[in-house]
Nucleic acid binder design. Structure first.
Length: 335
DNA sequence: GAAATTTGACCAGA
DNA sequence: TCTGGTCAAATTTC
């Protein structure tokens, strides 16, 4: 894995990163001391706080380093300067996927009269992550429930919910919209996490890390946006396919073959698993890793990172070895 | 006929 | 007041 800072990265930026790492080390040292001496947290930072600080420090530093393309170092530097606690970017230490309001279930109890239509609460606190992809397919089955013209946007936005929303109460939704600047790409925003049973299956994890060709994969730690660029093996979506999804992608429940036989789509599904990766509720931390299989010939753009890196790293453990190009994904821990 | 999609209506939040 | 997210009746597809 190559992690290369942009050439224009200022020495100030490096200094900030170093400070951040040093701070993380200090937090870890405090933790070690507390564990070794069985120190209670009264009067000082709690264990949880320290753990959060450590995780935040490392994940933010890693995020910045791995997003050399998407990240504006000057902006980061400014954020750092203006940050109250001196951290790179204010990161949530809440273990929250804040519980979604119960408006949906409430609505179900209400009489289904016309006046109740549109009665809902906006999702303000749900975890969201945005990817940019050439396809909208992923490993979940979605049902479209709406489409809207968006102000100042050339393309409408489509709304999807998990098909298991009603049978299993799954709250996952996603929004899909073509990008104006690049109408071959979809911006897909996932909101909430799959709680349905099928989402716990991870049959294609290995393929994700071992066989896919990636051109670049960057993450902007501020916008939580992941940019996925596929290599030339994936043909662009024809314009006739663009206007919104008209079929529901069936999940490969019961280990059956995915309904879509198109190899391209299958490849893309592997890519998009990434976005749903962290939907999985893992029983224990796992070693997360990625394989840069694309020939990294001339540049340092082959950078892999995570959606919401600060959370993902918490969920999946840490990278075992950043010095190697190959890092292995221990799938067994997920099953 | 069942399931999926479309589309206008409705409402909460900014 | 406007915009965006959701609902649900109508329509389309299988």
């Amino acid at each position: 894995m190559s992690i290369v800072l942009h050439e224009s990265a200022s020495s100030k930026m490096k200094e900030i990163l170093i400070k951040e790492l040093i701070q993380g080390k200090e937090y870890a040292t405090q933790l070690k001391f507390m564990f070794e001496n069985h120190v209670d947290s009264n009067g000082s930072a709690s264990v949880k706080e320290l753990v959060c600080n450590v995780l935040r420090t490392f994940s933010q530093t890693i995020s910045v380093m791995t997003s050399s393309e998407a990240c504006n170092f000057d902006e980061v530097a400014q954020n750092h300067n203006s940050g109250e606690d001196g951290s790179l970017v204010a990161a949530s230490c809440n273990d929250d996927v804040k519980s979604e309001d119960s408006s949906e279930s409430k609505k179900r109890l209400l009489p289904t009269t016309k006046d109740r239509r549109g009665s809902y609460k906006r999702r303000k606190t749900d975890e969201t992550r945005t990817i940019v992809s050439k396809t909208i397919g992923d490993n979940h089955s979605w049902r479209k429930y709406g489409q809207k013209e968006i102000l100042n946007s050339q393309f409408p936005r489509s709304y999807f919910r998990c098909t298991r929303k009603h049978e299993q109460g799954c709250k996952a939704t996603k929004q899909v919209q073509l990008i104006e600047e690049n109408p071959e790409m979809y911006q897909i925003t996932y909101i909430g996490y799959h709680t349905c049973k099928a989402s716990l299956q991870t049959p294609q994890m290995v393929a994700f890390s071992a066989g896919t060709n990636w051109d670049s994969f960057t993450v902007n730690p501020h916008s939580k946006e992941v940019l996925v660029n596929y290599d030339q093996q994936v043909p662009p979506i024809s314009s006739s396919e663009r206007p919104i999804v008209k079929q529901e992608y069936l999940n490969n429940d019961d280990n059956t073959t995915p309904q879509r036989s198109d190899l391209t789509d299958n490849l893309l599904d592997e890519h998009n698993l990434w976005s749903d990766f962290k939907d999985l509720e893992l029983p224990k931390p796992s070693t997360l890793s990625f394989n840069n299989v694309a020939p990294s010939d001339n540049n340092a753009d082959n950078v892999y990172s995570c959606t919401e890196s600060q959370n993902l790293e918490i969920d999946f453990g840490s990278f075992s070895d950043f010095s190697n190009d190959l890092v292995y994904f221990d799938e067994s821990q997920l099953l």
